[in-house]
Design a protein around this nucleic acid. Structure first.
Lengths: 155, 155
DNA sequence: GGGAAATGGTTGCATATGAAACCAACAGGG
DNA sequence: CCCTGTTGGTTTCATATGCAACCATTTCCC
C-alpha cells in the first residue's frame, strides 16, 4: 500500500494507476477491435457474447450480463445483431418464457473457430515481451485489484 | 511468451488478457469517474486536461493530445467546457496564432488542490491489497506492454 | 513573395452506450 | 385465484465520442 500521503501538490497522471491502466486497456482494446471489426464486422460486445457462448455452450442474456458486466442494453443489442446475422440462435426458455436461451449456430461456431486463433495469436504477440511468470503475475495482480474493487463497491 | 499454441477449441475469455485488462480498467475508470462527476461535475477527459495542466503548467491542445492519446475533438471539447467554467484560461500563442496556450486559473488550481488528494486517496484504497513492490511491478509490466503495443502499431 | 502543402483546432455527423422507462411473464401473499 | 411486486429483456432518450470535413494560420519551396 504505497501511501505517499504527504506530497501536497505535484501530481503526475503517468504515475496514477487508474489513468495508466485505462489508457493501456483502451489502446489494446481498440487495436484488437479493429481486427474484429475490419475482418469480421463484429463489435467488441458481439465478440464477447460469441466467446462466452463458445465457452459455455448455452446461456441467457442475463448470464452473459453477469459474466461480462456489460449493460443490459448493450448485451441485448449485441444479441440481436448476432441473431440477425445468423451467428446465434435464440429461443424462449421452456421453464420461463421471459428468458431466451442463446446458442451458437453452425455459422457462429465456424466463425469462432477462425477468430479464436487470430485473437490468441494477437495476444501472444502483445505479451511477447513478458515471461510466462510475469504473464501469470499480471493476472494475479489484476485479480487482486478486482477483488478489492468488489470490496469497495460492495459497501 | 506463453504460447499455448495447440489448444484447438476451448477458449475462456477470463484468461484472455485484453478482455480482462479492459474490463478491469473500465470498472476502475467508471468508479472513479463517478467521483469526479458527482462531486465536481467533471468528465474524465476534463479531469485529464486539468491534471496535465497542473503537472506541466502550460500546454497547447496538441501537447495534451499527445500526452493523453485522446482524440483531437475530445480534447477540444474538454478544453472548451473547462474554459466556460473558468477553470482554465486560453490565449493564442504569440508565435503561432493557431495554437492556444492553456493554463489553469486560480479557480482551476483550487479545484485541483481539492481533487488530487481525493484521487490519491481513492487510488490508495484500490491498491491497498498490493505491496509496494507489487505496485511497482504492475507499472513495470504495463510499461512493457505499452512498449510492445507501440512496436506492433508502428509497422 | 505566392501558391501548395501541412498543421492546430473546431465543428458536423453517425454511431455506441448507459440510464431510465417500459413491457411481458412469473412469483407469492391475501 | 387476483393483485402486487419482481425479473428478464427491449426500447427510448440524452450524451459521449471518433472520424472526417472544414477553417485559419503557418511553412515550404519555387
Amino acid at each position: 500500500m504505497p501511501t505517499d500521503d504527504a506530497a501536497p501538490t505535484s501530481f503526475d497522471l503517468d504515475h496514477f494507476l487508474p489513468y495508466r491502466l485505462n489508457s493501456l486497456a483502451d489502446r489494446i482494446s481498440q487495436a484488437l477491435a479493429r481486427l474484429y471489426e475490419t475482418r469480421h464486422d463484429l463489435s467488441v460486445a458481439q465478440w464477447r457474447v460469441l466467446a462466452w457462448l463458445h465457452h459455455r455452450e448455452q446461456l441467457t442474456a442475463k448470464q452473459i450480463r453477469e459474466a461480462t458486466r456489460m449493460d443490459k442494453a448493450r448485451v441485448s443489442r449485441a444479441v440481436q445483431a448476432l441473431e440477425d446475422r445468423g451467428l446465434i440462435r435464440r429461443r424462449p426458455s421452456p421453464e420461463d418464457q421471459r428468458r431466451h436461451e442463446l446458442r451458437l449456430t453452425e455459422a457462429g461456431l465456424a466463425l469462432l473457430e477462425e477468430l479464436i486463433p487470430e485473437a490468441r495469436a494477437w495476444e501472444a504477440e502483445l505479451v511477447a515481451p513478458l515471461s510466462v511468470d510475469e504473464y501469470r503475475q499480471l493476472f494475479e495482480l489484476m485479480a487482486r485489484l478486482e477483488g478489492q474493487l468488489g470490496r469497495l463497491e460492495g459497501e
